[in-house]
Structure formats: structure tokens, C-alpha cells
Write a protein that binds this DNA or RNA. Structure first.
Lengths: 195, 195
DNA sequence: TGTCTATATATACATACGCACATATAAGCT
DNA sequence: AGCTTATATGTGCGTATGTATATATAGACA
């Protein structure tokens, strides 16, 4: 379970509201973790009950009040403990690979189309990373981070890029195999038709 | 949500009990999806209520009775529809990358140790794949699959191998960066000590 | 004028799933 | 004699999370 700790990590830069934290997620951690707004609110509320956070309410005119959370000493300790603990190895969950596993029951065209769609998604991701990674990193740096922090952000982003490249390569290799076999089958059919 | 469809896929080979399906998972789909025994039983029960499956009970001596599920026509249609539908792109969830993101707040030694642990896990995985992939695939082939099915199983396994190699490479690159910077810092400290 | 987006909070309902435990028998190990 | 493993079924409890919805205001757009 990482969401509370990811929130602690972001709050270690500066106090923030649930709404702020959602925005912070979107411009950074979203690459390797994801959280909806209701989930963030629920988690913050629970963390406050657990004594990891405290909050103050700041009233605004024309806009809703802001509930600004900040870490307590207990929260800081919790973050440190979590950071030092060995990370769980993520168990892969990929519905595409499950589908592929039963690919024999699929129309080859549908299967190839699905793989191509996946490929598109990751090439698109790579484009966005190329275009946005530096601006995004700079935005992050301006907001909260120093150069050391930027380095870690780049490492995490590098993981995302390597992963996307790996998937694209795999898609190409798999599409080649599927195409080759489809062609072989056609040839056999043609022969039979000639016979 | 893929578990019910993964179970449908396995049941498309032949009728089976929850216990059988757990074993089938472990020798194949476990690479890219995972399910506990209670979760499988619960899901089968729900699928039966939804009319995707029917079952017969086979009594055995000395052993518990077997509740053997098989697909209904509705279940077959459901599987076909699911297979043809475009797969959801998996949203990455990696607590190691979250930790790395806050790596600046960590002891560099702890961080490096965590990355090394990750690296070990994936090198171990690669070893097991090297040793077991063919025997495992053959076992799968003997059980349920023909050559075409084996090909798709190999494609999925290939994904796992490529992923593991990518992670190992990333670990090496990241460890190099962390080491380099640690050394630089030491040098600066040494200089300061000399000054 | 009505809809959409942004700001900001949150509840309600449902689903997926992990872990612990309950039940029963037989075989094999220490 | 007691423990673990394999076979086979489940329930109960808790947690994480997704989706829909409620509330309130202001500005932009069609």
C-alpha cells in the first residue's frame, strides 16, 4: 500500500490540500501511481485519524475553504520507515497478455488490431515524454525540488521510457510472428484450393 | 476486470474445478495475472449466478467432492466479446518508483540496497524462465494446448523476459548514477576536510 | 441562457481482492 | 504421536479503490 506514503512524500515538500495533491500527482507521480480525488480525500482523512497529519482550514472568498494538511512528527517517522523498507515487487496485471494467452480463440485481425492499439498508446507516450519531460521536470523543480530531487525524478521517468520502448519492441516482434503465420495459413489454403 | 474472463479462457479448454483452475493459473497465467483460491471460488460462484457457467458435482471416496464448472453458451459469447474488445492499458503501480521519487530523503545506501534487491528478483526470474520456460510450456501443451496455442504462450512469456531484462538494465543504470554522485559528494567532503 | 471548466469539499454504493479461518480426509514424514 | 502437504470446498472480515453524485461559486464559451 503506497498511496498514504506517496501523499506523505508530497507533503514533505510543503503543506497542501487534497486538491493540490491531486494536481501534484498528475504532473509527476501519475507515471507510476494513480489516485482519484475521492480516494485522496478518504486517505488524507484516515491519515489524520492515524495521527500522521494535522490540518488547518483557510477560508477564501468566492471559493471553497481550503483544508490544508501538514505532516506531524509521527507522519515524518512513518515516511522515513516506509522509504527505508524494501519495496514490494509489483505483481504484473495485464489484460492484454491474458487475451494474448487465449489468442488462438481470437480472430487474428482483432488480435493484431489490439496489439497495434497498444503500440500506438506507447509510441504516443514516448512522444509526450520527449516533448514534455523536460518542461514537466522543470515545473516540478521550480515548485518543490532541488537538483538532487530532479535527478530522482529523471530516473523514474527513465523507467517509464524504457518500459514504453520495451513494449513497442515487443509489439513489433509479436505482430511479425502473427503476420508470418497468417501468411503461411493463406498459402496452405491456396494450395488446397488449387488441389 | 479480467479474472472472470481468464477463468472463462481456461474453462474453454475443458471443464474444471476451482482447485484445478488455481493450479492452471500457477503454471501459466500467473506470469501476468494472479488470483488466490478464495477469489477464484468467489468469482466462479458469481459467474454461475450470471449464467456464464453451469456445474455438476462429482462425489469421490476419501476426497472432497468436486464441483466441476463448464461454460454455458452465454459464457462462450462473453469470452468472445471480451477477447475482441480492446484491452485496457494497465496503469503502472510501482512502490519502488514512488520511493525513488522521494529518494532524496533517503539514505543513499538504503536506496541502492533496495534497487539491488529489485535487480536480484528479476535476475532470479530470468534464470527461472531460462530453466523452466520450455518444460512449463511443454506441460501446458500436453495438458490443453496445440502448437498454435503454444505460440501465444511463448509470446506472453517473451513479454515477461523482455520486461525483466529492461528492469535489470534500468537498475544497473540507476545504480551507476547513484554511485557516481555518492563518490562526488565524498570527494567534496574530503576536499572540505583538507581545506 | 445554458453548458463546461476550475476551485474545493465530501458521501454513498459497489467491486475486487488479500488474509485468516473453518471443515474433512488421506498420505507421508519426523 | 504429531506435523505438514495435498485434495477440495468455502465464509468472514477488512482494505483499497472506482464511479456516481451532492454542494457552492465564478469565469469562459457557444
Amino acid at each position: 500500500m503506497s498511496l498514504p506514503h506517496a501523499l506523505l512524500g508530497l507533503l514533505s515538500y510543503k503543506p497542501a490540500t487534497g486538491y493540490d495533491l491531486k494536481a501534484a500527482f498528475e504532473s509527476s507521480i501519475n507515471l507510476f501511481w494513480n489516485a482519484s480525488l475521492p480516494q485522496i480525500y478518504r486517505t488524507l482523512s484516515q491519515m489524520e485519524k492515524d495521527g500522521w497529519l494535522s490540518f488547518i482550514i483557510k477560508h477564501q472568498e468566492g471559493k471553497p475553504s481550503r483544508k490544508i494538511y501538514q505532516m506531524t512528527d509521527k507522519g515524518k517517522k512513518e515516511l522515513q520507515n516506509w522509504l527505508a523498507a524494501p519495496p514490494e515487487v509489483p505483481q504484473a496485471k495485464s489484460s492484454l497478455l491474458v487475451k494474448l494467452f487465449f489468442g488462438n480463440q481470437m480472430n487474428r485481425k482483432d488480435l493484431a488490431a489490439n496489439i497495434r492499439k497498444w503500440r500506438e498508446h506507447y509510441t504516443e507516450f514516448l512522444k509526450i515524454m520527449d516533448k514534455n519531460i523536460l518542461p514537466s521536470a522543470k515545473g516540478f523543480a521550480r515548485e518543490v525540488a532541488n537538483k538532487d530531487e530532479l535527478q530522482f525524478w529523471m530516473m523514474a521517468a527513465d523507467y517509464g521510457v524504457r518500459n514504453a520502448r520495451m513494449v513497442v519492441d515487443w509489439c513489433d516482434a509479436s505482430l511479425a510472428v502473427i503476420e508470418k503465420n497468417t501468411r503461411v495459413k493463406r498459402t496452405k489454403q491456396s494450395r488446397r484450393a488449387i488441389d
